[in-house]
Simulated assay, not measured.
Amino acid sequence: MSVRSASARYEGLGKSGKGHVSTQSGVLSDNAYGFNTRFENEPGTNPEELIAAAHASCFTMALSFALAEAGHSDGTLDTKAKVTLDKDGDGFTITKSALELTADVPGISADEFAKIAEEAKANCPVSKLLNAEITLTHTLKTA
């Protein structure tokens, strides 16, 4: 239905390399990322932060639409996602995305809200992606 894109460039290799990430919309434009922004909290972004933003926004939008479909017309949803990166042998694995939701939806019961929120968590596209098969195609330029 829709295709969105982003790009990343890395100059230098390993810890001394510096990356830049941009998005199709221009919201990110040559934003810094690299070892220091990922593991040492220097200014810039990192893949886990971007995944957390994507998951929080996707889930919140899915929940908003599900609540509207269930007949609710007013409310506020505030979600934080915490993405965990753990050491895994010689590399790393994203092991968890913990969604923390604060909501104000007048007229909804706790049971109805819990049911709709669980369905939104399971069915938002980013939740599905985090459990999806990953494929890769590549082209290697030779020097």
Rank of each mutant, 00 (worst) to 15 (best):
N31H: 11
A32Y: 06
Y33S: 03
Y33H: 04
Y33E: 00
G34R: 03
G34L: 06
G34E: 06
N36P: 00
N36K: 09
T37V: 11
T37L: 07
T37S: 14
R38D: 09
F39I: 12
E40I: 06
E40H: 09
E42T: 13
E42K: 11
E42Q: 14
G44K: 02
T45C: 08
T45H: 03
P47S: 14
E48C: 01
I51N: 01
A52V: 00
A52L: 03
A52T: 02
A53V: 03
A56E: 01
C58Q: 08
C58K: 07
F59M: 09
F59I: 09
F59R: 02
M61W: 05
S64L: 08
A66M: 13
L67F: 05
A68Y: 02
A68T: 07
E69W: 03
E69S: 14
A70L: 10
G71P: 09
H72R: 10
H72L: 10
D74Q: 15
D74T: 14
T76P: 00
L77C: 08
D78H: 15
K80A: 06
K80Q: 11
K82E: 08
V83Y: 00
T84A: 12
D86A: 12
K87E: 14
D88M: 08
D88V: 01
D88Y: 13
D90N: 13
G91Q: 10
F92P: 05
F92R: 07
T93N: 12
I94T: 06
I94L: 13
S97A: 14
L99S: 09
L101M: 12
D104F: 07
V105G: 02
V105P: 03
P106E: 14
G107F: 05
G107V: 00
I108D: 03
S109P: 10
A110Y: 07
